[in-house]
Design a binder for these strands. Sequence first.
DNA 1: AACAAGTACTAAACATTGCAAGGTACCTAT
DNA 2: ATAGGTACCTTGCAATGTTTAGTACTTGTT
Lengths: 109, 109
Amino acid sequence: MNVQFKKGVLTLCVLVLTLKKDRYGYELVNKISEQFLIAEGTIYPLLRRLTKDGYFTTYLLESQEGPPRKYYQLTESGKTYIEVLIKEWELFSTGVNRLIEEGTKSDEG
Amino acid sequence: MNVQFKKGVLTLCVLVLTLKKDRYGYELVNKISEQFLIAEGTIYPLLRRLTKDGYFTTYLLESQEGPPRKYYQLTESGKTYIEVLIKEWELFSTGVNRLIEEGTKSDEG
DNA sequence: AACAAGTACTAAACATTGCAAGGTACCTAT
DNA sequence: ATAGGTACCTTGCAATGTTTAGTACTTGTT
């Protein structure tokens, strides 16, 4: 998968997956990778960034399957940011699709 | 518009707009900016890159409205690359939309 | 007990690419 | 001549995903 496509959109994906329940990093890597592969080295710096920017708070929980998991919980600011990002994504992807249509369909203006 | 969303996707937009007819840089800036704003400083380096990579050949044509225009014409390699990029874009954007749905709809797995 | 494999997190160096800012130059109209 | 629109180019910067390497915990196997 084209690496560059993911730039910025990963932020949206990570945030949106924590809307309904708190998640930990490793879980997010696997969840997102069901749709398109991402590396662990991408997620952890991103999570740190989003936490530093006030979109997440974190807490540790022990696990029976390995070392403790660091859970990420959305803040109000994070929820607001998601809405902005989703709207921007819709505008953007619609724009791209329009250009593709314009470029591949019979007539153009 | 989120800058990061554009990473990589601009390549697709530029290529696809030259499928049906050759275009010049300034024209591409305006055409793409109808959907989402992009800067001239983005397009010209991108066009040089794509030409260097063998996706475009170029030629100059005089204009009555200003200095000569450098037209970009797709090569066979460029046409092949577009098909790949469009497929990747479809897979990617579908994946993102699925994650958004999964994150915003009632139940999830 | 030793080892491998899966889980889980972290860090540093790197590559790619879009933007801002600045510049050159042509043409038309005032 | 001066301004504004057209058209191109370059440099330095910022943002972010990948690669690679490493730490450490748990469970199952030999």
